[in-house]
């Protein structure tokens, strides 16, 4: 029983990273901007959170720092892709490399040390007394609840239940039509790319203040890329992203369990699991639903918008 509870708790905790990063990416992609820089944003967020808590000993401030740094980096990315209309793929790769390199450079003095402050568990009264689920689900920290319940709910309501959300989705589908009815395409794109980048960077703070919890070079380990693919096979929907994140958390947790219990599988193969499972998820559902129209990407995803090319 404690095994199952531990497994579930760990899955929830490790999946939260992907949930946060994925929802940040979702915001950018829904307005038509493919941000491949999530990995770099996460690294920047992770390192700025660690550096902040080292001097303030306050996890909340750490998260705030990661949000701010993410917004700045996202602003640079948005200036390049939305305003200057440079290739989103190239700028995303540049953000990934620049973010990873910069984070490794400024994080060097902090590498390997445990974070000075971490998220405190926030048990939910009564529910945390449940036999198996109580420990696993209801004694997590505040960011876990935010990542799994509050944020997806907020994003779902925003995107699918408000007029503003309809506008955002329309910008991702057909910016020219939006422009024609007087919606300001570029400012909205800019704003949501920055907001999404801040959210993705906060996944880094979650990583180094909640999950690992320490900074080291390469701590993000491709999670940003998994988050990008998660958004694709979750069909660009917040709840499905969260569900997918939990699934990946479970794969991760099983890997740790296998390692801890020494099931005889070399640890390298266990570490490969998340990437291989991602690959599988990129390919198998597409293979099964061939010919049938599934959830497709926003039609204008990746395309710069020029008013004179309508």
């Amino acid at each position: 029983m404690t095994l199952l509870s531990g497994l579930l708790g760990n899955a929830l905790l490790s999946g939260g990273v992907l949930a946060l990063a994925g929802m940040g990416e979702l915001l950018a992609e829904r307005v038509g901007v493919l941000n491949l820089g999530v990995e770099g944003l996460m690294a920047l967020g992770a390192v700025s959170a660690v550096i902040t808590v080292a001097s303030t000993h306050d996890a909340g401030l750490g998260v705030a720092a990661s949000l701010a740094v993410g917004a700045i980096a996202g602003g640079v990315f948005a200036i390049a892709t939305v305003l200057a209309r440079a290739s989103q793929v190239l700028c995303g790769m540049a953000l990934t490399m620049g973010g990873l390199g910069l984070a490794a450079t400024i994080g060097r003095p902090f590498a390997g040390q445990p974070s000075a402050a971490t998220f405190r568990p926030m048990p939910i009264p009564l529910l945390d007394q449940m036999p198996v689920l109580g420990d696993a689900l209801f004694r997590q920290s505040l960011p876990v609840y935010l990542a799994y319940l509050v944020l997806p709910l907020a994003l779902h309501l925003l995107l699918f239940r408000t007029r503003h959300g309809l506008t955002l989705r329309a910008i991702g589908e057909n910016p020219a039509a939006c422009d024609a009815v007087g919606i300001r395409v570029l400012p909205l794109r800019f704003a949501y790319v920055v907001l999404g980048a801040a959210l993705s960077a906060s996944a880094g703070a979650y990583l180094t203040l909640g999950f690992v919890p320490s900074w080291s070079d390469g701590v993000t380990a491709g999670r940003g890329w998994i988050a990008v693919s998660l958004v694709i096979f979750a069909g660009y929907r917040p709840w499905r992203i969260v569900a997918g994140a939990l699934l990946f958390g479970l794969v991760n947790a099983l890997g740790y369990l296998a390692q801890a219990r020494n099931w005889g599988v070399p640890s390298a193969f266990l570490s490969m699991l998340p990437y291989l499972v991602t690959l599988l998820f990129m390919i198998v559902p597409a293979l099964l639903s061939r010919g049938r129209p599934g959830a497709t990407a926003p039609a204008a995803l990746g395309l710069p918008y020029y008013r004179d090319q309508r």
Partner: peptide, 11 residues
């Protein structure tokens, strides 16, 4: 790793 950041900047 500063060189990696520079590579990103150039890109």
């Amino acid at each position: 790793s500063a060189a990696v950041a520079l590579v990103g900047l150039i890109l």
